[in-house]
Amino acid sequence: MPIHLMNAAYPVLTDLLSELPIPPTGPYPEDVDAVVPLRTGIGEGILILRLTRRDFAALIATGGLAALLPASLAIPAAAETGPAGRFRATLAAHQAGHHLMAPNQHITTLVETLRDIDAILDTADPATQTKLRLVKAEFAEHISWLHRERGDLTLCRRWSERATSWAIAGGDTAMAAYMVLRNASVALDAGDHQGANNLAERARTLWTIPPALDAVAHLYQARSSAATGIIDTARLDAADELFAQPTSPDEPAYLRFYGPGWADLQRATCYMVGGQPANAITILNARLTRLPTTHHRDRALHLARIGSAHAATNTPDAAALAEAHRAGSQHVVAELHPLHTLLTQRWPNQPKVREFAEAFTAA
């Protein structure tokens, strides 16, 4: 039965946004008018939202998402009141709906919202000022990630530094450590394994951090070790144990992206970099079958690394790479560049390799 739309909690909204499918051409459509239905059960009834992807994009950009869902869908949540809560709600919608707009569109809106925060920061009471500085750090963290998605590592690092500075000013050392680990991840992607190891060690020893962040640091150090041909199983196992620890209800929201599945991806990367690609393929294939269909970027990363592992075993899987390339993430595309060169050099006449090469060069 139809339900009238009223206010709802943002956790419900962000869940629905995350479920919104993407077109086969990629997750960052600039101009899509197709109507996409969203269905969710409400007791004995069904809520159906029929909005174009552009409508969702506009609602995210203007912060008007809170009026979409019925209050009967609201779930218990530690809803934050005041300016900090309002700005965090806007950020949550951008994070959950990141695939609805190109990164640049999100960045423009988020930077404008940061100006809105600054406009009230100086005249706010001291407690609110502290909260707003922490919100600014969270905005800067997501902007940093978006710049990484669009392939601009310089701006990724610059916004990471801003997030670190604002987090420290607000007393959030966990966020500061998280941004140090963001830079460690960028260093790993750039091939600076010793620099990544140093940054991960700094994050682990400079502050007291949540177990999940400690696990991330261990995994980045394990990847640094793998680059020297050594699989550091002790660090990999330590990370698994840390992720198995109970989580705190007041843990930072960004930590929800890290867990056993993400650890498996890092373990597989270690095997691949450390010269044991067959082990990586086994892990990645197992994880891929358990990924929700809506996790497009994670699926693309898995497929890209499966393709790398197959190439290392001299059994190219260009079909997987073609699917990964369609995800549109510049982070994924950057991983595919060396593979494109390797495949076209070794297997130029394989039909799937030619198909992948044509799609890659045309993009």
Rank of each mutant, 00 (worst) to 15 (best):
Q266W: 04
L219S: 02
H295E: 12
L291E: 10
A278P: 08
S224I: 02
T228M: 12
A263H: 13
E241M: 07
L265E: 14
T282D: 15
H296R: 10
A253D: 15
G259M: 02
A217K: 05
S224L: 01
I231S: 03
T269F: 01
I231T: 05
D250C: 04
A286G: 09
A217L: 04
H218L: 07
P210W: 07
A263Q: 13
L291N: 02
G274D: 06
M272H: 15
P260Q: 14
Y271P: 10
H296C: 03
T293Q: 14
G261N: 12
Q245H: 05
L291M: 07
R290G: 01
E251Q: 15
T247W: 10
D237I: 00
R290W: 01
S248E: 12
D264S: 13
M272V: 04
Q266Y: 10
L301P: 02
L284G: 11
A234G: 01
R290V: 00
A217R: 08
A222H: 07
I281V: 15
D240H: 05
R235M: 07
L301T: 10
L255F: 14
Y271C: 09
I230V: 14
E241N: 08
A280W: 06
R299T: 11
I283W: 01
L301C: 02
M272E: 15
S248A: 14
A227R: 11
A278R: 15
R223V: 10
R223K: 13
Q245F: 00
L265T: 05
P246M: 12
D237V: 00
D250Q: 15
P211Q: 10
A212F: 09
D214H: 07
P252F: 02
T233Y: 10
T293N: 12
V216H: 09
S224G: 15
T247I: 12
Q266V: 09
T289K: 07
L284E: 08
G275S: 03
A222S: 11
N285G: 13
T282R: 12
F257V: 05
A217Y: 04
R223I: 00
D214F: 01
A215L: 03
D237R: 10
L265K: 09
G229A: 07
G259W: 08
Q221K: 07
T293M: 03
T293R: 08
D250M: 11
C270A: 08
Q266S: 10
L236C: 11
L242Y: 03
G261I: 03
A268N: 08
A280G: 06
G261C: 07
S225E: 12
H296Y: 05
A280H: 10
R290S: 03
V216K: 12
L236F: 03
P292Q: 01
T269L: 13
A244S: 14
D298Q: 09
L301I: 14
R267Y: 11
A226C: 04
T289D: 11
L236T: 03
Q266G: 00
Q276A: 14
A300P: 06
